[in-house]
Amino acid sequence: MSAPTLEVRNLRTHFFTRAGVVKAVDDVSFSVKAGQVMGLVGESGSGKTVTGFSIIGLVDPPGRITGGQILFKGRDLATLPEAEMRSLRGNRIAMIFQDPMMTLNPVLRIDTQMIETVQAHAKVSREEARQRSRDALGQVGIPSPDERLQSYPHQFSGGMRQRVAIAIALLHKPDVIVADEPTTALDVTIQGQILAEAQKLCTQFGTALVWITHDLSVVAGLADDIAVMYAGKVVESGPVAEVMDAPLHPYTLGLIGSVPSRNRRGEPLRQIPGMTPSLLNLPAGCAFRSRCPRAEPRCAEPPPMAEYRPGRHARCIHPHDEAVAA
C-alpha cells in the first residue's frame, strides 16, 4: 500500500476570541492517497472549512493551530515556516472555494489572476505563463480560452467562474486540492459537470482531493473515503460505501436519514432534532448527546475514537453496531 499524500493527525485549530476559546477543529484525523477523494462531511459550523484552511495554512488570528500534525509527504505543515508554506500553497497544495462569485478579484482580468499564479511558483516568461493559463482553461472545458483570458470575472457565469478557479488550482498540477463546497452555490446540472470534471482531473494527475461538503449525496457519488465531522471532531470515518450502508455513529445515521430518497417516498423524513451546539464553551463529553436518541449517562464522558471494524472508526460508546455485536 502506498503512503498517503496527506495525513491529518489529531489536528486542533482553536480561535481565541474575546468571548472565549472556540474549538473549531478539535481532534480531527484523516488521510488521503494520491488520486483518491476524501469526503469531509458536516453541517455548517462543524469545523470542516477551518480544517481546510488549516491544511493550506491560512488560519487567521484570532485562530491558530494548537495541536496535531498535518503530514504532507512526510513534512509537517502545521509547523512549517510561512515562507516554505507559501511555496507549497497554490503549487503543491491548492484550494477551491465555495462561492465562485467571490473568489476571483473583480477588478483584475482573468489573465492577470492566472499568470501571477504561474509566476509565483515557476520561473517562466510571461508568454509561457500565458500559454499555461490558456491550456489550463482548456482543460476545464472553457471554450475560446484566448478570448476568455482578456475578460473580467463579472463577464462569466457562476459555473464558468468556478471552472476558472479550478483551472487556477490545477495550474501547477498540485498533489493535494482542498475543495470547500465548490458546487454548493451552483445549479444542479453545473454541479454534476464540475463534479465529473474534478474526479477526472484528479485521477488523471494523481491528485489527492479533499472534498468538503454538507451534502452526503455528493460525497456518496464522488469520494473513496469519508470523514463525518460534528462540533469540531471527526465522529466517524471509513470507506464511503461502508459508512453509507452501515453507519456506526448515531449522527451519521441521522444525516443519512435526513436525505430525501426515492425509496422512502411517502414516509416522513427522519430528521435530527435540535441544533448544532455553539462551539464556545462546549461541555465535556459527547457533543451530540443532547440530540442523540441513544444518549445515556456515560455519554457525559468524552468518548474515544475507536476502530470498530478494520478501517472503520467512530467516536461513540454505543455505535449502531449490530454487525459488530453479532
Binding site: 491560512l58 507559501r86 500553497r89 497554490g90 484550494m95 473568489t103 473583480p106 501571477e116 499564479t117 487556477i168
Partner: peptide
Amino acid sequence: DYVKFARAKGL
C-alpha cells in the same frame, strides 16, 4: 474570499 484565494495561490 478573493483575497484569501489570492493567498491560497501562494502569492
